[in-house]
Design a protein around this nucleic acid. Sequence first.
DNA 1: CATTATTGATAGTAATACTATTATATTTGC
DNA 2: GCAAATATAATAGTATTACTATCAATAATG
Lengths: 222, 222
Amino acid sequence: MKNLQIHITVSEDLYLKNPESSVLGKKIVSKSIELIDQLGFEAFTFKKLGIAIGSPESSVYRYFDSKRSLLVYLYAWYWSWMEYRLVFGTINHTSAKEKLKSAITLLCSPIETDQTFEHIDEVILNRIIVAESIKVSHNKTVDEQNQKGLFNPFKQVIERVSAFISQINPDYPYPNMLVFAMVDGAIEQSHFASHFPKTTDEINSKTIIADFYTDLIFKAIQ
Amino acid sequence: MKNLQIHITVSEDLYLKNPESSVLGKKIVSKSIELIDQLGFEAFTFKKLGIAIGSPESSVYRYFDSKRSLLVYLYAWYWSWMEYRLVFGTINHTSAKEKLKSAITLLCSPIETDQTFEHIDEVILNRIIVAESIKVSHNKTVDEQNQKGLFNPFKQVIERVSAFISQINPDYPYPNMLVFAMVDGAIEQSHFASHFPKTTDEINSKTIIADFYTDLIFKAIQ
DNA sequence: CATTATTGATAGTAATACTATTATATTTGC
DNA sequence: GCAAATATAATAGTATTACTATCAATAATG
């Protein structure tokens, strides 16, 4: 995948100045990923970020008008990246069943680093999404941000997988709910598994979440 | 259910002074439910709460050491109440299948007011759980609070339903994951349905979430 | 009715989430 | 290569938040 000129585009409404347009911007993004992961979103501040990158917090504010906007940006980037992975990961299959199977694996397995995007560590970003992304959607500003299209990449992921299901069984009545349950559930299961081992099931393999949803979804739609 | 002497007990570690032990304490709880619902958790402050109940914020701090603790208290109360509903709602069935069916309905249907607990409006509390409870579990203090037993009522709900599944089909390999997916998913589906109608499916009935999970779970476990 | 516990009233503090201003680099167009 | 525009640094300042502290007033209890 190296040297492939692919670019994840994030809606212009989600930043004041495009962080991909400068060295400082990229430093802001990559260092904030590190810091949010270490400190948690609540304890993360632009002041701490400024110190970490050797710039005043006022410089950070030229890219994002709040720390929440930065999280929203990361969220949008992550789901755009997931959509790109989904498209690339299913394009070569001819049958809808194979596509669905790949999609489930892709969305439910532990993330590996993608060398294509240098300033973003996808493994850490995934941890942030698992731990913090819920704060993007569970907020009084959610409707406003929905209108700005923030959730489009997320919705598109759901729609794409949903379409595979409808191809396999056009009569299944809940394709969207089922895929939503999986996409959202995989993240929550992975969060809860790491904090409350007993909520989930014994076998502690890396594929258990994907196995669970593969079994569940194929049983549901036949 | 009136005049029944039932009491939801919340672990002593979750408050400084038991809010059920005084008029002020109950006012704090019932008014905070209203305010968090109206303002959202981020904009909710003890100062605003103090003004709303006509007491200084320092008085509120004698019951809870932070607004987060208050949310944690509400979370613990809610899941204890759900467990009580679950026990009462399944006790009269003889077959595990009937128990499971009732449990799903109970956990996935819109909440109705329970007159048993006067100072708590369960309908509004449910809205708070849907919108904000995720902030209880997605926080750097989660492991500490887990050790204090905060999540026990939630886990017990999962275990009880999981036990019904194992009775029906002892060979189903993911009973806990399946129930977790439902309990957590029902909340998230209801949140997303109210903000992003298109993520979920067309039929906008009050029973759709329960219908979806009933179909899903019974297909999964046979 | 004296002691104790509870609440009210008020003040204060450190940190947070920004905004504003001016100086200094750095880039860009010509 | 130099002026003009732009980006960043350095610093200061503000309103709000999330508490803590103190002491007086009131209510409950023995």
